[in-house]
């Protein structure tokens, strides 16, 4: 708690330093302090949840509990995906935690290919926990380190506000196609987490935009709702149906919503006077 307070006062300074110019929606730097502090709590909670869930997941992998590990894969990733704009600030960890086979020259066989997707490959493509223990240990160490670094992090306001759009760009560029979780096909879990993470940011700053641009707020909320309604069709008791159950029409609905949210949220920084 001490640490959180300290970080807050630092954030305030960071906000003030970054906004020398007149804000478009007449948002004062002080107005952003509350939302940024709340977002820091959201990120910290998710990072801690990620540590807890990754522990259970990697324990199952190491114990050779294939079915349990498979079942935990989709939900474990969600707390990472929800805070991806912040997690990605640490590119070394993002690479070792969440890179995909095609980020590596030798793809699945590349020794640099580690993290969630390397384990996913073992569990779902090779249907085995064999030889996954070192990857499990590495993943556990990485998420623990991520949590530590996030605790110490001062959140740059433009990264937080920009993060709402960044999450949509991620989905639009590499996720809507189902290439993210290509072995497990648990992409809809990731979608849900990405959208929730983006909406969290939007909701936190929403009161600042609403007074000057209620049409914008209504439009963005409407598109988030559209995504929720569409994803809800694929909800199961445990989480979500596999990506291949997503119909062509619903995929187009999600793609259009993502593109529109990406366009609209790309103006959010500017609307709040952030560069």
């Amino acid at each position: 708690m001490m640490k959180l307070k300290l970080t807050l006062s630092v954030s305030l300074l960071a906000v003030a330093a970054i906004m020398p110019r007149v804000a478009m929606a007449e948002v004062s730097p002080l107005d952003l302090v509350g939302p940024i502090a709340d977002y820091k709590i959201y990120v910290s909670e998710n990072a801690e949840k990620l540590v807890t869930n990754t522990k259970a997941f990697t324990d199952a992998v190491k114990a050779g509990e294939l079915d349990k590990a498979k079942a935990l894969f989709g939900s474990t990733r969600m707390s990472y995906e929800a805070i991806e704009p912040i997690a990605e600030l640490f590119s070394d960890l993002d690479g070792s935690i969440d890179s995909r086979a095609d980020d590596h020259e030798k793809a699945e066989k590349d020794p640099e290919f580690t993290g969630f997707h390397r384990i996913e490959y073992g569990l779902f493509a090779e249907n085995s926990t064999k030889d996954l223990a070192p990857f499990a240990d590495k993943l556990m160490a990485d998420v623990t380190e991520l949590n530590k670094r996030i605790t110490d992090l001062t959140l740059p306001p433009e990264k937080v506000v920009g993060g709402a759009a960044v999450l949509m760009e991620e989905v639009a560029a590499t996720k809507i196609s189902g290439e993210e979780d290509r072995y497990s096909h648990t992409d809809l879990w990731d979608f849900k987490a990405n959208f929730d993470g983006s909406r969290k940011i939007f909701d936190l700053v929403r009161p600042l935009v609403e007074k000057d641009d209620s049409a914008f707020v209504t439009k963005v909320s409407g598109n988030f709702d559209k995504v929720d309604t569409t994803l809800a069709k694929y909800k199961t008791a445990e989480g979500y149906q596999l990506y291949d159950k997503l119909t062509e029409d619903d995929r187009a609905v999600l793609a259009a919503a993502v593109n529109t949210l990406a366009e609209d949220l790309s103006t959010l920084r500017g609307k709040l006077g952030l560069n």
Binding site: N223, A252, A255, A256, A257, N259, T260, A262, E263
Partner: peptide, 10 residues
């Protein structure tokens, strides 16, 4: 076109 009609055309 893509930028101006993201919600109606994919």
């Amino acid at each position: 076109i893509l930028k101006n009609l993201p919600d109606l055309m994919v």
